[in-house]
Amino acid sequence: MLVRVQADLFDAGAELNSFSQGRTDVGAIVSFTGVVRDTDGNLQEMLIEHYPGMTSKAITKITEEAIARWSLTDALVIHRYGPLKPGAPIMMVATAAAHRAAAFEAADFLMDYLKSRAPFWKKEVTDQGADWVAAKDADEDALKRW
């Protein structure tokens, strides 16, 4: 298991390659990369604040839960903080399992939990000013699936 919380840019392709390399015991690797989206064409940057003491611990706990529940061979979570430009990667999740159903489901679970239970807060800075992104009820409801 690898959990990283960092300000630095990461290369999702390179991370996935190194996560996948040398494995002969898995049949499925799923990955997801979250990217800063400029919905209205006026986003200058996305500021991501986090709770330094809690973030890694909370993500590690969620990831351990996913590994146990879906019998994953391995899992990777990288999440950035700080000012990010449109198009920049925010975070990625990768899961490795014997079969694809477990790898897909575990990645989906991890994404739902990271959205609502990992201590990050997004602020969008546009030419109109800066605003905190509100949590969506749909994201909270998504947790009920699990």
Partner: peptide, 12 residues
């Protein structure tokens, strides 16, 4: 020892 208050989280 430590109490933190914050809005609902928006990770991912």
């Amino acid at each position: 020892r430590e109490v933190a208050f914050f809005p609902p989280m928006t990770g991912g």
